[in-house]
Amino acid sequence: MKVRIFVTLKQGVLDPQGKAIHHALESLDFSGVNDVRAGKLIELDLDPSVGREEIEKMCDKLLANTVIENYDIEMPESALETVS
């Protein structure tokens, strides 16, 4: 099963990369861009037996640095049905 982890900087943490992208969009004459935040997408191909709790451990122990980052886990719908 394919699980996607979105790692983003916490609110209030300065994102210089996002700021640079924002600036570049403006210099390409795109208007109406209020803010840009850059993050990471990590795709995991997991055995269906791996539960959400285990994935959260992976995020806490390695994939995200929770001092500065938040993470969201996107599980396939079929996996959610199995859990519920």
């Binding site: 943490v13 300065l14 210089p16 990369q17 700021k19 640079a20 640095n65 001092v67 500065i68």
Partner: peptide, 8 residues
């Protein structure tokens, strides 16, 4: 934590 330099 040590993050990207603020001026990149």
């Amino acid at each position: 934590a040590l993050m990207r330099n603020s001026n990149i």
